[in-house]
C-alpha cells in the first residue's frame, strides 16, 4: 500500500501570548489553547492532496508525546488522515528521540514519503526532519514550497535564503514544509464526528526500543528583554528630523 507518514506535534497555538512562569521553570501552558503545529497542518494538507490526486492510498499521522497529544491526532483525523499512531512519552522529547521513534514507525509502515514541519513553533528547533533523514539514510528536502511526485522521485522547490532552489530526490524521502506549500483546509463538524471512529493506535517508546534520553537540560526560561516604547512623531518632516539627529539618515 502506498503510504505517506506525517509528523504531528502538539504546540501552544500561534496566537497565544507566551508568558514565562515566575519561577523561570517554563512557560505557562495551563489554560492555554493548544493546536497542531502550523507547519504540520501544512504537511498533512499536502499528504491529503497527494492522496486525493491518486498519488497515495493511505495517510498516517504520528505523534510522540503525552496523552494530551491525542486531541491533535483527532484533529488530524478530522482533517482527513486515515489513521493515527500515538507514541506515548512524557517529559521533554528531543528531536533525536522523536526521530528515532518516527524511524521505528517508518520501518513498520514503509511509507514512500514522510512529511514533517520545518520547525515546531514552541521549541523552534527545526531539526527533526533532517535528523530523521540522516538516521534513515534517505534524502531530505527541507523548507518545501512546491512538491511534484513521480513514481520514484520527488521534485521539490525549497525556500532558501537566496530565493527558490529545486532539488530532485529519490523516494522514499523526508520533506519538511514551509508556509507557502499550501493552505490547510478547515475541519468541518461532521468530520470531527467521523474522526472519532477512525483508528488511533497507542504505542510506547520502550515497546519501540527507543530510549527517552534527554541530553539538553532546560536550565532556565526568561522573558526576552523588552524594547522601550518610543515616541510618536506627527509627520514625515518630524520623522526625518529625528532620524537625522540620531545619525541614521
Amino acid at each position: 500500500m502506498k503510504r505517506i507518514l506525517v509528523g504531528i506535534k502538539r504546540v501552544v497555538d500561534y496566537n497565544v501570548r507566551i508568558r514565562v512562569k515566575p519561577d523561570n521553570s517554563g512557560v505557562i501552558t495551563e489554560g492555554v489553547k493548544m493546536s497542531v503545529n502550523p507547519f504540520d497542518e501544512i504537511a498533512l494538507e499536502e499528504a491529503l492532496r497527494i492522496k486525493e490526486r491518486g498519488g497515495a492510498e493511505e495517510v498516517i499521522v504520528a505523534t510522540v508525546g503525552p496523552a494530551d497529544c491525542q486531541q491533535q491526532l483527532r484533529t488530524a483525523l478530522a482533517m482527513g488522515a486515515d489513521r493515527a499512531l500515538h507514541v506515548q512519552a512524557d517529559g521533554v522529547i528531543e528531536p533525536l528521540v522523536a526521530a528515532r521513534a518516527l524511524l521505528k514507525l517508518i520501518e513498520k509502515e514503509q511509507p514512500f514519503l514522510v512529511i514533517l514541519g520545518k520547525q515546531a513553533i514552541d521549541d523552534d528547533n527545526g531539526q527533526t526532519g533532517q535528523v530523521l533523514a540522516a538516521l534513515w539514510q534517505r534524502p531530505q528536502a527541507t523548507y518545501a514550497s512546491k512538491l511534484e511526485l513521480t513514481e520514484t522521485s520527488a521534485r521539490v522547490t525549497r525556500e532558501v535564503d537566496a530565493g527558490l532552489e529545486t532539488l530532485e530526490v529519490d523516494l522514499p524521502a523526508v520533506i519538511t514544509t514551509d508556509l507557502r506549500l499550501n493552505e490547510p483546509r478547515y475541519v468541518k463538524l461532521p468530520d470531527i464526528m467521523k474522526a472519532k471512529k477512525k483508528p488511533l493506535e497507542t504505542l510506547t517508546l520502550p515497546a519501540l526500543g527507543v530510549e527517552p534520553r534527554q541530553q539538553l537540560k532546560l536550565v532556565r526560561f526568561e522573558p526576552p528583554p523588552q524594547r522601550q516604547k518610543g515616541i510618536r512623531v506627527k509627520d514625515a518632516a518630524e520623522l526625518v528630523e529625528a532620524l537625522k539627529k540620531k545619525g541614521l539618515l
Binding site: 533525536l96 527545526g126 531539526q127 535528523v131 538516521l135 527541507t142 523548507y143 532558501v160 539538553l216
Partner: peptide, 21 residues
C-alpha cells in the same frame, strides 16, 4: 541560515549528537 539549518541537523543526526539551534 537555510544552508546551516538544513545541514547541521543532518550532521547531528549522523553523529546522533544533540543540537542547540
Amino acid at each position: 541560515t537555510t544552508f546551516g539549518k538544513d545541514l547541521m541537523a543532518r550532521i547531528a543526526g549522523l553523529l546522533e549528537a544533540p543540537q542547540v539551534s
